[in-house]
């Protein structure tokens, strides 16, 4: 068996409507975090937020490149109107340089100084077909037929949907290795569960979507939704619905590694020291830290939401099966 490549750690795109300076500074800090190899930048949820981040985009990307990160520009997950479509157009238009300047998808230091685009819907996929790109978790990649097709279109890495469990991953990830597409798994953060044409943040505030006053900015980790029994259940983030619980596949890293997963995605949260989270995931992935110790350190971060890993174990996604200390 060939020596396995080192698992890489990715920061997903910021899913929330943070203050633009907070957004910029978060990425600046990531540039200095050695444990993060890949950084996703770009507005995925709501095209109306993009103009606020846009002025800082070039600066952020340059800084990340300068520190040797692979930078992935993430495209919008749901498009219908012209504004949304033209945002996807402008993001995917940047892929031209990427395919020209990036020759090899090789170990560790892949793609230094090159920008690669992440398609998160079929609009972006249509724009990117024939070039070199990555697929985000908002595109339905459930099986080897789809992986083969996406690879044929130019996908070099695919972040799989969070609902895929161990059984599916055990079949799919090795197939991806055979096809020559890297497997990325969503490993930490509130799970993206649904997208809608309707904005639930606006609706929760009694505002129309077109006059939303950007109220999603008040909830940098999402707006908690409880059942009528007061049980926390989901989190609202504009047109997106997330899990209330925070996905945590730290304990599953040894299994993911065995399957051949290349990249672990950590989804940024405001109330969470992402550098510390990355350090813990990195240490466990490198087998420099036991799972039990990593878990204790994650718990010590006192996150404002519980952990979940149910999907991986074929359970409801909200379930938490505490990893076996052995």
């Amino acid at each position: 068996m060939p020596a396995r490549k080192r698992m890489r750690i990715a920061s997903g795109p910021v899913l929330f409507n943070w203050a633009p300076e907070q957004w910029r500074d978060f990425h600046f800090r990531l540039a200095d975090v050695e444990d993060v190899d890949i950084v996703h930048v770009g507005e995925v949820v709501c095209a109306k937020r993009h103009p606020f981040f846009e002025p800082y985009m070039a600066e952020v990307i340059e800084r990340l490149f300068a520190s040797g990160k692979q930078v992935v520009l993430s495209a919008l997950a749901l498009a219908m109107n012209r504004n949304e479509r033209s945002l996807i157009d402008s993001i995917t238009a940047m892929a031209g340089e990427a395919s020209a300047s990036e020759e090899t998808a090789d170990e560790g230091g892949e793609g230094e100084g090159a920008l690669i685009i992440e398609a998160n819907d079929l609009t972006a996929l249509a724009r990117l077909a024939g070039r070199r790109f990555v697929i985000g978790p908002f595109v339905n990649t459930y099986n080897a037929l789809t992986v083969k097709e996406l690879a044929h279109l130019g996908a070099v890495r695919i972040c799989l949907p969070p609902e895929l469990g161990r059984q599916a991953l055990s079949a799919l990830v090795p197939a991806m290795t055979d096809i020559g597409v890297e497997a990325e798994v969503f490993a930490f953060g509130r799970m993206p569960l649904a997208l809608s044409a309707r904005c639930y943040h606006a609706r929760s505030h009694g505002l129309p979507k077109d006059g939303c006053r950007y109220v999603c900015g008040e909830d940098p980790d999402g707006l908690p939704l409880k059942t009528l029994d007061e049980e926390p259940f989901l989190a609202v983030n504009g047109i997106q619905t997330l899990s209330y619980a925070c996905l945590n596949l730290l304990g599953e890293i040894p299994l993911l590694k065995d399957m051949g997963v290349s990249v672990l995605r950590l989804s940024p949260h405001a109330t969470c020291d992402m550098a510390e989270v990355a350090a813990i995931f990195r240490a466990v992935a490198d087998e420099n830290m036991a799972v039990a110790e990593g878990l204790a350190r994650l718990e010590a971060l006192k996150l404002p939401f519980p952990f979940a890993n149910g999907y991986f174990h074929g359970q409801p996604g909200a379930a938490w099966l505490k990893p076996d200390p052995a």
């Binding site: 799970m191 993206p192 569960l193 989901l234 074929g314 409801p316 996604g317």
Partner: peptide
Amino acid sequence: CVMAEGRCLLSSYATGKSPNM
């Protein structure tokens, strides 16, 4: 369906059974 069809994991989050799969 009020969510984008084919891209909704709400049901599987609560039940483990997925519309997509």
